[in-house]
Design a protein around this nucleic acid. Sequence first.
DNA 1: CCTTTCGAGTTCCGTGAAGAGACTCTGGCA
DNA 2: TGCCAGAGTCTCTTCACGGAACTCGAAAGG
Lengths: 150, 150
Amino acid sequence: MQRTDFGAMACSIARTLDVIGEPWSPLILRDVWVGMTRFEQLQADLGISRKVLTERLNHLVEHGVLERRPYDNRPRHEYHLTDKGAELVDVLMVMVRWGDTWLAGKAGPPVLYRHHACGEVSRVDLHCSGCGEPMHAGDVDVLAGPGAAA
Amino acid sequence: MQRTDFGAMACSIARTLDVIGEPWSPLILRDVWVGMTRFEQLQADLGISRKVLTERLNHLVEHGVLERRPYDNRPRHEYHLTDKGAELVDVLMVMVRWGDTWLAGKAGPPVLYRHHACGEVSRVDLHCSGCGEPMHAGDVDVLAGPGAAA
DNA sequence: CCTTTCGAGTTCCGTGAAGAGACTCTGGCA
DNA sequence: TGCCAGAGTCTCTTCACGGAACTCGAAAGG
């Protein structure tokens, strides 16, 4: 939790950061996405402090991004992505694309994605929901929307 | 700077977080993107501590995301996105989409984007670079890539 | 020429969050 | 009855954020 409350800002970026802007949160999401669903697994894989992991998991569950499911009829839990959480992973996929392009170096990307629909190893491209053409940071004008600050 | 060094992990998400994972960094990028390029403007708009703003700007310049340009023949600077930085804004656009969808509430999105190519107010969609079909978190298999950890 | 102003930081201090690791609690199971 | 494993809690230290005051360099103004 940052000292400043990003959630109250009239900005979807700030609000999103309020949910996953804390250190470790995106990596927790990544791990849950690829099937690491239990506390001990996450702790071992990330090397994160147990205290912080507990805090992050609670925060993500509170915000409806993860869901806590019991298993084994014991006080054991697994964490799973909700629909809301699965859409957040889209953000991670774009981060992966950027990291692969600019930071991977000679070794190449650490992981690859195979698209179910076509079977090819590929990456995400961004397109306009209106016309379907590519859409990037420089291709848009930013206008005030209905939820803009007063 | 997180205590743990994300930049050393074999994960493009962690590496990207090493560049923009600190609090405020994405919001600084957003402001520079929409034309707030000077120190005083950024400080006033964000309400961020001057010390932290200095640290973040230096970090972003070091990582080649922003570029410091002198103006007015004085010790005055403006910050601008590099190509590397502009591509990072793609990540922010996807965050905006998620925040608009899940967090904006009744008031609606704070800002809207008008796409230059078609003139329509729209959002980003994610597609497969191979087949062009939609591609989301659940539509891919994750495979080890050439840069995977040993 | 001396002082003011303005942008762009730098310094200092107090508090709170991250990190490490030990401890607890619950429910099987040998 | 004792042990084990998963899933947390507790405690302590250290570092980073937030806020405010201070500095510095170059015009500008009288």
